[in-house]
Computed example of a mutant assay.
Amino acid sequence: MVFKFTIDDVLNRYIPPNRLDRLPKIIGRFLGAHTPTPKDDYLIWLEIFISSFVGIALIEGVFKSHTVFTHHAAPLIFASYGATAILCFNSSSAPLAQPRNVLVGHFISAVIGLCIQKLFSLSEAGRANYWASGALSVAVSSVAMSIGNCIHPPAGASALLPSADYTVRAMGWWYLPAHLVSSCLILAVALITGNIIRKYPVYWWTPGPVGKPKPAPIEAPAPMHNKLSTLPIVKAESDGSWVEKTKEGVTFVPGLDSIQINSREVLVPAGLDLDELAIEWLDTFKIKLMESESSNDSAV
């Protein structure tokens, strides 16, 4: 779904353009600055298998080891990263799997989920209704990710975990840096394994234009003879009737009381006042009919 407003409407003018092509080739390749060639399916399946195994094992290995998170009841892995691995390694070209969506989506959802859970924890009634804080966390994070243009479906679990899992609640604010570390680790694996035979990411921030918008070029006024050429041309038929034809191919017929469109011509009443946009709109229907007839003929 394309929203009318996202945070990109405000931030994109301040984002610098992509300059990865200026990096050394070997570095740029593992940041997605290359064009992959088609590969056989079995090679892609092998890459998906290796990437998924290494990505999940790396996160588990870090949290299994003695780190700063060891003293803060960090679990072996947050379950939401299982779904993130599927997106990053199976659907690496999907917008939902790009680095911004993974990193920002998980972090925003984790912040919202943790803050709402802590608000519910302030009262005995709230602590007895963590089901409500979990539902509210997912709802708020869904809207926040939509506004931030960083939708990442597994991040819904990141918003839910502080309310649903008592071990995550025991982590407190350490839940947030643990998410940042997990996201960076799985993205690091995706950048290495995802750029051997395929390409990851497709973009880092947005596929749309970034930087300050360039001023629109000032168009010179059209020559007078061009304007005259768009006016109706009046000619007489052999039977003495008059018709008016325009440059766009729309025919104005005296006495006609309806608009008739087929694959060869467009007929409109002579007294109907049409601007260039309306004429172009009518001509579009004629083209669609021509394409439809061509496709039917080829099918036969």
Rank of each mutant, 00 (worst) to 15 (best):
V266S: 04
V250Q: 00
W242T: 11
Q260P: 00
L256V: 02
E219D: 07
G249A: 06
G240V: 15
A220M: 14
E276Q: 14
L267I: 02
S258Y: 06
A236I: 13
T246Q: 06
L228I: 12
A216Y: 09
G240T: 14
N262P: 08
N226P: 00
R264S: 04
P232W: 10
D275K: 07
H225V: 08
E237Q: 15
L274I: 12
A236S: 07
L256E: 02
A222M: 13
L272P: 02
S238W: 02
S238K: 14
K235F: 15
D275N: 15
V253Q: 05
P215A: 11
E280I: 05
S229A: 13
H225G: 00
D275G: 13
M224Q: 11
T284D: 04
L282P: 01
F285D: 02
P221G: 05
N262D: 15
P269Y: 01
P269M: 02
A278Q: 15
G271T: 14
D283S: 14
S229E: 10
K286E: 02
E265N: 13
A278F: 03
P269D: 03
F285E: 08
V268P: 03
S263I: 01
D273Y: 11
W242E: 04
G240K: 07
L277P: 00
N262I: 00
W281M: 09
